[in-house]
């Protein structure tokens, strides 16, 4: 475990905690894409299949449980909670996310570490995570109003990805044979998706103006 990876996991944890707090305290999910949250729930379900069969460390197991619990409870809140569900902006959150799922599944069948069910599901979760933010970014572009909790949510997610790239660079130079193209390519693609959001987020913060994404 290196400092970049720990910081990355913590900012990832922070992003879901910020989101859960927002939904739980103000009983609103305005500006949040349910599609993205559903994709994240699938990402964690597909990636953590080995939760009970492959023990890495207590930290690893606890974090997996936290990510699974938080992503599924966010989806539950947005779909089932009597108050929160009314604040869901379903007219604008119309990105057909199954368009993302199928290609990721096919790609995972083609490119994986080993052609076993668990490895294919792991690769699928890596590819799906890379594009999972897409419906959320589309929703932000459409509604253009970014309340600061939603902005913080996307910002922390982007920061977690940048820190993971630093983690891979560190591991590449400190661990022999640490080469994992699947995670690296997908991780870089994912981080690039945040690049323009980062730019507008930092510019709005610097000029102290409300965050506006160009149409």
């Amino acid at each position: 475990m290196n400092v970049f990876r720990l910081a990355g996991d913590m900012t990832h944890l922070l992003s879901v905690v910020v989101l859960l707090l927002k939904i739980h305290t103000i009983k609103s999910c305005a500006g949040i894409s349910l599609k993205t949250q559903e994709l994240y729930a699938v990402v964690f379900a597909a990636r953590y299949l080995d939760l009970f069969v492959h023990f890495v460390s207590l930290y690893n197991t606890v974090m997996k449980l936290v990510f699974l619990a938080s992503s599924f409870s966010i989806v539950w809140y947005m779909k089932r909670h009597k108050i929160v569900r009314r604040t869901y902006d379903k007219d604008h959150d119309t990105f057909r996310h199954y368009v993302l799922v199928l290609p990721c599944l096919l790609l995972a069948l083609l490119i994986n570490e080993k052609f076993t069910f668990r490895e294919v599901m792991w690769a699928f979760s890596i590819y799906l995570e890379a594009v999972a933010i897409f419906p959320q970014l589309v929703l932000l572009q459409r509604t253009r109003n970014i309340d600061n909790l939603t902005g913080q949510y996307v910002f922390f997610l982007g920061a977690y990805r940048v820190l993971y790239i630093l983690n891979w660079i560190y591991r590449y130079f400190t661990e022999p044979h640490f080469v994992h193209w699947i995670s690296w390519v997908a991780g870089i693609v994912q981080t690039l998706l945040y690049a323009d959001f980062f730019y507008y987020y930092i510019m709005s913060w610097k000029n102290n103006v409300k965050l506006e994404l160009p149409a």
Partner: peptide
């Protein structure tokens, strides 16, 4: 050494 890939990461 367990499955391939950086499966020690989250």
């Amino acid at each position: 050494n367990g499955p391939a890939g950086p499966h020690d990461e989250l």
